[in-house]
Computed example of a mutant assay.
Amino acid sequence: MMQKILFEERDLERAAEVTRFFERHLVSLSVRAPMTFDSDTAPYRAADAILLSLGADASEVARYVSYVCPQVTCPIIVVSDRVLSDIEALKILESGASDCLASPYCDRVLLARVRARVRRNIIVRARMRPQNYRFDKFGLDTQSRELLTARSSARLPRKECTLLMHFMLNNHAAITREELLEVVSAEDLDLSDRSIDSLVSRLRERLVAMGGRAEIIRTIRGFGYAFESTVEPIAGDEDLRALL
């Protein structure tokens, strides 16, 4: 599913610039005025991550983060257009922020930090409550690594399951080969870009062999891949096969 990021920023020109960049990478960014959590909490609770622009005193932002953090389940990332002192950064991180990014930085680094924090949050929450997924004509049992259709099943090798999980959690987003390499590198430190291509090909062939569409994993020439399917989370205690 497309990631939904909420960005508190008073500089509308800067907000528009970041929004355009994120949207080019298929990430939805909604902009709010600073420190407006209490005016409408719903967008904050629905967000996959919250970006807070440091436009005020670091102590004031830290107090705000410590107030918002217990009321949301997503990571909060503070960004500053100036260099922060160690004391300021510590205040912000100790208040509950997941990350603190200070100038100089580029929007590509900001996007990578956001995706990394969202990914980590998803992994932590998934460990707390096992969750399966349904997409296209398939289901994935994340505990057993079993890929299911209404009439067949196959147990995925660990690296293929890791790859498929990352695709599903970032569906419709353009994902670089470098990002995929980072995701599966924990399984095999010797993986290369070419190995990633081979791994994607094996996963695609498996999906096709079980009746899926080859274009469900779209190759983006010179960049990476995109997973073109709607993904639905399914509670771990539901009968996954009965839903296919």
Rank of each mutant, 00 (worst) to 15 (best):
R194G: 05
A112Y: 04
T176P: 02
K159N: 07
L199W: 06
G139D: 07
R108G: 10
N171M: 05
I122M: 12
L110E: 06
R129W: 09
R155W: 06
L93H: 04
E146V: 15
S95N: 05
I87T: 11
S98H: 08
R213Y: 08
A126D: 13
M168E: 00
E94R: 14
D197S: 15
I196G: 00
D99H: 10
R115W: 03
V124R: 15
P75W: 06
T162F: 08
R120T: 14
M128C: 11
A209N: 07
T176K: 13
E88D: 13
R206L: 10
L164P: 02
D99N: 10
E182N: 07
S95A: 15
R177C: 10
P104H: 06
R151K: 14
I196L: 00
M210T: 00
L181F: 07
R113G: 00
R117E: 10
R129V: 12
R117P: 00
I122L: 14
I87G: 10
L156V: 08
T176Q: 12
G96W: 01
I87E: 15
C161W: 02
V124S: 14
I122V: 08
S152N: 14
D197Q: 15
S144Y: 08
L140M: 07
I77D: 01
T73N: 13
L84P: 05
S80W: 03
H166P: 05
I123T: 11
G139E: 04
V183I: 15
A116K: 08
S201A: 14
C106A: 10
S153H: 12
T142K: 13
V183W: 03
E182M: 13
R194K: 13
L101W: 00
C100D: 03
A209G: 02
K159G: 05
A97F: 01
E179P: 04
D197E: 14
S144K: 15
D141L: 11
T149E: 02
D188C: 08
M128G: 12
V109R: 10
R115T: 02
S192Q: 12
V79N: 01
E187Q: 11
G211E: 01
T142I: 06
L140D: 03
E88G: 04
A89Y: 03
D136Q: 12
R151I: 12
R151V: 09
P75K: 02
D188P: 04
L203D: 00
P130T: 09
V124D: 11
V109P: 01
L203P: 00
C106Y: 06
T73Y: 12
L148Y: 04
D107Q: 13
Q143D: 14
S80I: 02
A174E: 07
A186N: 09
I196D: 02
E178S: 13
S153M: 12
L164H: 02
A116M: 11
L180T: 02
D107W: 10
I196T: 00
L110N: 04
E182Y: 09
